[in-house]
């Protein structure tokens, strides 16, 4: 049986040409596109002591604004500032008293313009 040339054998062995990758983007860039007029008073308060005993922690994956971040010591770090005020967190959280949820002061919080 005849063989292909050594040059093409090495090209073929090197695998297929790498296809262009989708540019990766950071979450910070994404949410940076949305305007927030932050009020000094937190409209959502998280009781971290309840979260420490929570095995499921639905808020971490579900919050579209990525406001719930697990800490290395088993707690949850929460930031209210870039909040869409959507309600996902309190709806998925089934731990009584973990999340106290209200709206920000009038005129503050998220400001959509192109949605």
């Amino acid at each position: 049986m005849s063989k292909i040339s050594d040059r093409w054998a090495s090209i073929a062995a090197a695998g297929t040409k790498e296809t262009e990758q989708w540019p990766t983007r950071s979450f910070e860039d994404l949410i940076g596109s949305t305007r927030f007029d932050v009020h000094e008073r937190a409209h959502i308060v998280v009781d971290d002591t309840v979260c420490r005993d929570c095995p499921s922690r639905e808020c971490i994956v579900a919050c579209p604004a990525k406001l719930f971040v697990p800490t290395s010591d088993g707690g949850i770090l929460f930031n209210y500032e870039q909040c869409f005020e959507c309600g996902t967190c309190y709806l998925v959280c089934n731990k009584e008293g973990a999340i106290s949820w209200s709206y920000p002061e009038g005129g503050h919080g998220v400001v959509f313009k192109r949605s």
Partner: peptide, 8 residues
């Protein structure tokens, strides 16, 4: 991306 948004 001009705006990222979410709503329940």
């Amino acid at each position: 991306v001009q705006e990222y948004s979410a709503h329940v």
